[in-house]
Each structure stands twice: as structure tokens, then as C-alpha cells.
């Protein structure tokens, strides 16, 4: 991991949403959706952002590709500060990044054919001038996501395709501008189990072949294993644990990560005979989260300090950070 391979760095990134109560009220509250996230992603690597709904993972994903402007911290992309880019610079950043969303059925304008949907990014960035070249690019992108023969798909409307096929088109659209970074926000959570693996496998192949940086946002720990090098566990706007995916799965340190692993269902007929040990309760409201560790109210191992102070990120093992007082000494 030399400096040349560095693709994306987040430094203490914050995204707070303002909430005004009433029309004239000057009192402003904030939803602290992303509250101090730091990590680094190298070229051609995939990182899983794992968390439940309300953990801030989606907000983080959208902030990274600058659909939201951060309130604090920095985003460094290819050694360039993109935190507050504007206008043409932002347009450049849009070309360098791609997005795959959760809902494939909503991801396309229903009045555009697949061809037009894929052509749009090319038209906007004007990277290829002639119509023929654009068509060639569109067809190539469809081939890339294995929607062949391309002519069968290019002139269809979105409603004529299945969820899995649409998600492939979404991937094709995300890579058509040859970006360096792809954010895939729960790309398979609305698809059938058998199709999920198909899409994830496709994403993985593209990532390796095109040396893409991929940020894979998911609530499902089980799918992170074969599809990402790094994993980052988020809870209530904070990063609770980050390490190599294999390391996290094999040796989870944070009580929250452990709870997630326990709760993830796995096909096993023995399951029905036992109850799962999972923490009760629900994630805190992000308007007024606990000042200390945000998981402390649900944590089975919480002690005094956990309710008083917010823990920093401890490097419990080499390359394995955990935001938990249990690992203070190491």
C-alpha cells in the first residue's frame, strides 16, 4: 500500500443534517448521521460498510460521492481535496465516481430506454463526441455486465426487465464513465438470494478487472466475506470497528460486531432448537445520541467508563481498530 495506490481518504468526516423546529424558531437541531469517520481505501480495493438502518452508512456513502456536502472533516480523492468541490471540479469528481443504488426498479427513469439511460452520462460529460462511439460504449457496458445479446436489452424499457437485470444495467451505468470509485449502496438487498450472489460476483469481477475502488454498503455481514478486502462496522453514525474483512469475521472484537455476527441467520436445521443471544433494544436517535459510547445502552459488557466517555479508536491488533473501552490497554 504505497502512496501511489491511495484512492480515497476520509479524515474525521462529518455529515449533520439541520432540523429546524417551526417556521420562525431559531433553535436548530442536528441529526448526526455521520459523526467522525476516518478511513483509507486503496485503488482496486473493496470496502464493506456494514450497519443497520440509521447507522449512517448510506449517508456516508452519499457524502463520499459528494451527493451531500460534508459539515466537517476532509475527503481526499487521488491526493486531491474534494470535500467542498464546486461546479466543474465537482463534475470531474462525478465522472470519477459511480453509484449503484438499492432499488433497481426506482433507479431508472421509466420513460427512458435502457440505451438512453446508459447514454445519459456520456451525453452529460461529452466524453465521446460521435453518436456511433456513444452507441459502442453503451453496448460495451452492457456486455461488461453480461446483458447479452445487447440488442435484446438496449431498446427495452426498465419495467420489462427483472430486478437482477436492472441492477446489472445500474452497474453498467455506474461504470460507463470509467470511474475510479464505485459506491454500491445495498445493491442486492432487494433481490432474491440466488440473484444476490450473481450481482455481487459481477461487481467483484469488475472491481478486479478495472482496478476499481468499491465501497459496498450492506446490512448483511455474510455477504462481505467474499466480496471485500476491508470491512467497517458502523453504529449510530460512528465507526465501531474496522479491519480486513476476514479478520473481522474471524476475530470480531466490538460487542456490537459480535452481536451482528450472532444475529446473522445461516442455513442450519439446528437453529430452530436454540434462541439467539442478541442485545435487546434499538439504536439511539441521532438527534440526541449518548455522549459516551453510542452502543453502551445495549452493550452486555458495558462498564462505568462506557457511560461516561466516548472511546477513541484503539488499534487492538495490527490493522484492526476498534472503538471500545474494552480494548484500552492494548
Amino acid at each position: 500500500m504505497n502512496s501511489e495506490g491511495r484512492l480515497l481518504e476520509l479524515e474525521d468526516l462529518r455529515k449533520w443534517f439541520e432540523i429546524r423546529r417551526g417556521f420562525l424558531s431559531s433553535k436548530v437541531n442536528y441529526v448526526k448521521a455521520v459523526d467522525g469517520v476516518t478511513f483509507r481505501l486503496d485503488e482496486g480495493m473493496a470496502m464493506s460498510l456494514v450497519g443497520e438502518s440509521g447507522s449512517g452508512k448510506t449517508t456516508l456513502g452519499k457524502t463520499i460521492i459528494r451527493l451531500y456536502e460534508p459539515n466537517g472533516g476532509r475527503i481526499i480523492f487521488q491526493d486531491r481535496d474534494v470535500t467542498h468541490l464546486k461546479a466543474n471540479d465537482l463534475k470531474w469528481y462525478r465522472r470519477m465516481t459511480g453509484l449503484v443504488q438499492q432499488d433497481p426498479f426506482g433507479a431508472f427513469a421509466s420513460h427512458f430506454t435502457i440505451f438512453r439511460s446508459l447514454e445519459e452520462p456520456l451525453l452529460i460529460h461529452n466524453t465521446v463526441k460521435s453518436k456511433e462511439e456513444r452507441a459502442e460504449k453503451v453496448f460495451k457496458a452492457l456486455e461488461e455486465v453480461r446483458l447479452t445479446p445487447v440488442e435484446d436489452f438496449a431498446y427495452k424499457y426498465p419495467h420489462m426487465l427483472s430486478g437482477g437485470q436492472l441492477q446489472r444495467v445500474a452497474i453498467a451505468r455506474a461504470i460507463i464513465l470509467e470511474p475510479r470509485l464505485l459506491v454500491a449502496d445495498e445493491p442486492v438487498s432487494m433481490l432474491d438470494a440466488s440473484v444476490r450472489i450473481e450481482i455481487l460476483t459481477l461487481l467483484r469481477r469488475l472491481q478486479e478487472r478495472l482496478r476499481l475502488g468499491v465501497i459496498y454498503i450492506t446490512h448483511d455481514l455474510a455477504t462481505t466475506r467474499f466480496f471485500s478486502e476491508w470491512a467497517l462496522i458502523m453504529y449510530a453514525g460512528h465507526v465501531m470497528e474496522k479491519a480486513f474483512t476476514q479478520e473481522i469475521l474471524r476475530n470480531p472484537l466490538h460487542p456490537y460486531t459480535r452481536a451482528l455476527l450472532t444475529a446473522t441467520p445461516e442455513p442450519n436445521p439446528e437453529n430452530r432448537n436454540r434462541f439467539k443471544q442478541v442485545p435487546p433494544g434499538e439504536p439511539p436517535a441521532l438527534i440526541d445520541p449518548p455522549k459516551s459510547c453510542r452502543f453502551s445502552p445495549r452493550c452486555p459488557h458495558a462498564f462505568d467508563k462506557c457511560f461516561k466517555e466516548e472511546p477513541p479508536e484503539f488499534e487492538a491488533a495490527s490493522g484492526h481498530w476498534v472503538k471500545c473501552w474494552l480494548y484500552e490497554r492494548s
Binding site: 465522472r95 453509484l99 443504488q101 438499492q102 432499488d103 433507479a107 431508472f108 445519459e120 452529460i124 451505468r173
Partner: peptide, 26 residues
């Protein structure tokens, strides 16, 4: 608030383009 608008913003569609080609036809 539809995802396809967000997707278009992510690939850099301008407000003008979004209004003309994405919103008004709808």
C-alpha cells in the same frame, strides 16, 4: 426524491437537464 433522480445527480446531470428530461416528462 426518487432514486433515479439521485442516480442522475450522481453522474453529474445539471438541474436544467434534470428538470427538462427527468422531471417534466414524468
Amino acid at each position: 426524491s426518487y432514486p433515479y433522480i439521485e442516480a442522475a445527480q450522481a453522474y453529474g446531470a445539471s438541474n436544467m437537464r434534470l428538470i427538462l428530461f427527468y422531471v417534466i416528462p414524468k
